[in-house]
Amino acid sequence: MRLVPSSPVSCSVVALGAVVVGGAVLVGCDVIPTDGNLWEGLGAEASPSPSPSASAQQAGPAFSLPESCEGIGAAELVGDLVPRGSTADETVGEVEGASGAEEVACSWSGGEAGDPGSAPGGVEDGADAAGTPSIILTFTVDTDPSNRAQIIPVPGGQEEMNWEVDVPVDTETYRTDTTVELGGELKYISTAEGSAKHLYLSLPGDFHVSASAMFSDATKEDLERVVLAAAEKARR
């Protein structure tokens, strides 16, 4: 760590091993004139700064997987983003292909399609082209779910969407005041036409909260509100 001194005195204290040449102290940050009194009381060996304890190094928010979607109040967290007439589902267990990783996924799918006029492609495409709306709130530990975003299984039994080959996507990584407080970072991934939107919140301890919306009017701000509120409830 490079220490940036706030004053000449603090600079000289840091550099007790500096060389005195021609009445001046040569230190790493500046040349300080001496009058003989500067070193008074500094002849003894400086006491080493205490190293931070293990508990101090681990200080900060800690998070844990919920036992169930109901237990953490997932429906309340998602709120009015749940599609009308949709069916709730819960998946709890290990993450395939990630040793030791676990996940709790709360999903709502099979609901009513939105207004055809608001579907990607406009009125001519109709509700069928808009697809079946769904939303998923996921808690993951010990693996980053955003690394799996290239291939996403679309709810409702539809074929997988190979984004890397077939569908252009936009990616944005950013922080907010709340994520800074939590020690985390947000990554937003969406298809170019907006049919699929995914927001991933990475937190200390390799803990992740994500929200995904398919064929939904949910905005990035809506998903951000959900993942931040979910992270607060997952804090120990």
Rank of each mutant, 00 (worst) to 15 (best):
G156P: 02
P168A: 03
E221C: 02
Q158Y: 13
D170I: 10
M161S: 15
G183D: 07
E172I: 13
L203D: 05
E181S: 10
V209Y: 01
K220G: 05
D170P: 02
R225Q: 01
E185S: 11
T179S: 09
Y200D: 07
A196M: 14
S210V: 10
S195K: 13
K233Q: 06
G156T: 04
D166C: 07
D222W: 00
E224D: 03
Y174F: 15
E193I: 12
E160G: 12
V167E: 10
D177L: 09
P168M: 09
E160R: 12
D217T: 08
T173S: 12
E164F: 14
K187N: 09
T173I: 10
E160F: 14
P204I: 04
F215W: 10
E221R: 03
V226P: 05
L203H: 04
A218T: 01
D217Y: 04
R175L: 11
A211W: 00
K187P: 00
W163A: 15
I189T: 13
K197E: 06
T176K: 07
L182A: 01
E181C: 01
G157R: 12
A211R: 05
V169C: 08
T178S: 09
D166I: 05
K233R: 13
M161G: 11
E160D: 14
V226W: 00
E224V: 00
